[in-house]
Design a binder for these strands. Sequence first.
RNA 1: GCUCCGGUAGUGUAGUCCGGCCAGCAUGGGGGACUCUCGAUCCCCCGACCCGGGUUCAAAUCCCGGCCGGAGCACCA
Length: 495
Amino acid sequence: MESESKELPELTNVDKWPKVVMRLAPFPSGPLHIGNARMAVLNDYYVKRYDGELILVFDDTIGSAEKQVETEAFDMIPEGLDYLGVKWHRTVYKSDRLNIFYKYAVDLLKKGEAYVCDCDAGLWRNEHKIKGKPCSCSILSVDENLSRWEMMLDGTYPERGAAVRLRTGMDNPDPAMRDHVILRISETEHPRVGTRYRVWPLLEYSWGIDDHELGISHIIRGKDLVKEGKIEQHIWCIYDWQQPELLYYGRLKFQDATLSKSKSRKEVLDGTYSGWDDPRTWSMQSLAKRGIDSQAIRKIMLDLGLSTVDISISMKALYSENRKLRDADAPRLFFVESPTWLKLSGVPAETTYAEAPVHPDFPDRGVRKIPLDVRDDTILVGIQTKDYDRFEEGLLFRLKDFANFKLLKGKSPVGQFHSHDVDDVRATKGPIIQWVPKKGSVGTEITMIDGSITTGFAEPSVSKLKPGTFFQFERWGFGCIVESGSPMKVAFAHK
RNA sequence: GCUCCGGUAGUGUAGUCCGGCCAGCAUGGGGGACUCUCGAUCCCCCGACCCGGGUUCAAAUCCCGGCCGGAGCACCA
């Protein structure tokens, strides 16, 4: 068992099952995003804890106009799970199981537990569901229902022309529980099975059958699915199946990010986002690209526990965890955003490079050399305009790990060499800032979290680092190299 | 409107079933030490039991009544 995070409560009735079997049921409309990670991590946690089995079930029923199956998701979701360290034992596609759902549909019709309703959906809602009055379809004979069922399958009924309703009771006090539709007609083409089927199950029905068929013992999911759970229980009761344990957690929102798969899908398709790994999608792919350690995500998700309250957390918590995990391994670098070029004069002629530690906490990792091209006692270096602007004329400041200079703002920005000793600048409480030499620095493009690009220059030693390297730009923030070269491309991680 | 769920510092969470150690932890904010970063590390501080009754020697915890918040009520998932 991984020693991650706090101890979550025990699962109930574990001993009543041969083993703990749980499932991940993402709808394949896009990659997993950070909100989906909670579902994946919680299920994975418990399966590992009880040495059980985890099944990845693509919930790829036909969906709707707003929720469409995205073919790429069949690959991107497993990729995201791998990143998260989620281990699953087998993969199942709902779209391969239509015959099972049909078999039970016929059986339910024969038992009188369901009926085929050809009422208009809107009319039924207003005249029957809200008022709690059954419609005339509900008193049909079994034979009539079966023949209507055939008409659904063979195309006699058009889309929305008829649907199968589960007889949960029109007198149920909960309006959500009144004779819900469990199968309906859709002629939308499915990316995996094409137009082979025109009758598709709804989530609650397919799971009512499949949770049993797949031997699921425990289900953990969002509380937006409690109604679906009740409908499942109704089905389990009809067949007298052992009831899986149901566990719900509340909605998770992020204060500093809006998560919407459908919006992301639109922006990715029309090119507003750079792809499914654009930081604005908050996909697992995008977080990996930024150098977020998946253990940080796991820790955050597990710390939330199984509370049913809706919560709103800040990404700062995630970043804090990531820093804890990765700071020690992140080499330090200088990066100057929109530089002001300073002409430094009086630089000792023998100066050829500056040395800065790779990591201040680990001197044994050595130093990075920053070459200095001194000509006629002068050299050109860049400092952040942001720094330059707030500095006053005559200020003694230090170029970190190099030397101290006195600032002379004039027609052109100039720095006059003062000394090498850090203590000189400490004595005057002067600022110590990062810098880059004009010669040899690498043009850098940083993709920020909002998708915008920040440009600047990174010190020459970055060219030795490989893509995928997680680093810290001193006084600036953490990031990950996406592409080396010029310009070098970097994904911003966090402060 | 109906059904269900829930309210602990700014945020998140532990404790609630089986009342009792100054309500713990993390994050955040503030301050200090250290470091040649605004990072890390170390120390200190700030800050909460929704409200009102009741039971009790003792209530975040049990009971009653309010108030507030959320989810569901699709031929979506």
